[in-house]
Simulated assay, not measured.
Amino acid sequence: MRAPPEQPRNRQVINAGVPGQNSADGRDRFVHDVLKNQPSVLLLFFGGNDALNPGAFVPLDEYVANMAWMIDQARSHGIVPVVSTILHVDTARLLARHQTERSEDPNEVIDRYNRALLHMAHGKRVRVADFMQALDTAGGPTPEMSTDGLHLTAAGNRLLAQTFFQAMPTEWPRGVVCLGDSLTYGVPLRTAEQDSDETYPAQLKKEFLSRVGGDRSPGPAATTGAP
């Protein structure tokens, strides 16, 4: 039986999301935002901007290389990485607000990026939080889950937090860094003027405080590789 966690409220869950950024930006700030915080777990969630944002496109092979680099860097410093798949979007609502400048359907682009990401992650035996599957199973990026077809409501963030939680190691972490873009930051619920306790990192901490020590068997939305 696992011993109860010690002083859980002193363990940090750091929101290192920056709106508009891509995997190359995450790689550039990896030392500052991840290594300097010395977490035991890294949650990686990039891809929406890489695949769809005209101002932040990253070619598929470079996207995978960036994610692989961050995974390798985390492991070389004793940090357990967990990577999330990219969510499917509500194309009609997304295109009404954001132009992608790609000829393909946005979800076809996302599927290509996810296939490459999963191939790399499985090859490296990395823990995967399959948020694409979890959200699809919950009905997709509906108004209940998504504010604009891409960004998440409180309910969507709760599902993302639960998906990551199920894919994480069972031991209470020394600290968690959530590295990502606007979906990690919490747009539109969190702004520069107003913080929010409904972002996925904030809800992840709530999840730990309410469920650590209980049943942590991975659900269908989580696949695990090496610890």
Rank of each mutant, 00 (worst) to 15 (best):
G180P: 04
Y113F: 15
G123W: 08
V82T: 06
L183V: 14
L179D: 09
E108C: 02
G149F: 01
G175C: 12
I86C: 02
N37V: 03
E6N: 07
P5T: 06
S196Q: 04
L43A: 15
L118R: 04
N15I: 11
L43M: 10
Q73R: 09
L52M: 14
R216T: 12
G219N: 13
S182R: 02
S23C: 10
H151E: 09
Q194H: 15
G48S: 15
S84R: 01
D90P: 10
P169I: 10
P141S: 10
A155Y: 03
S84V: 04
T191W: 08
P143N: 12
F57D: 12
S196G: 08
R93Y: 03
S76I: 05
A68F: 08
S84N: 04
N49P: 14
D28N: 11
V34R: 00
H119G: 10
V82E: 01
R29K: 09
G214M: 11
M70L: 03
L52R: 03
V82F: 03
L118A: 03
A226P: 04
S210L: 13
R115Y: 05
R102K: 06
G26E: 04
A202R: 05
V58W: 00
L95G: 11
L117Q: 01
F57I: 09
P19Q: 09
S146N: 05
F46L: 04
L135M: 12
E6D: 09
E101P: 03
S76R: 06
V109N: 00
D195Q: 15
D215K: 08
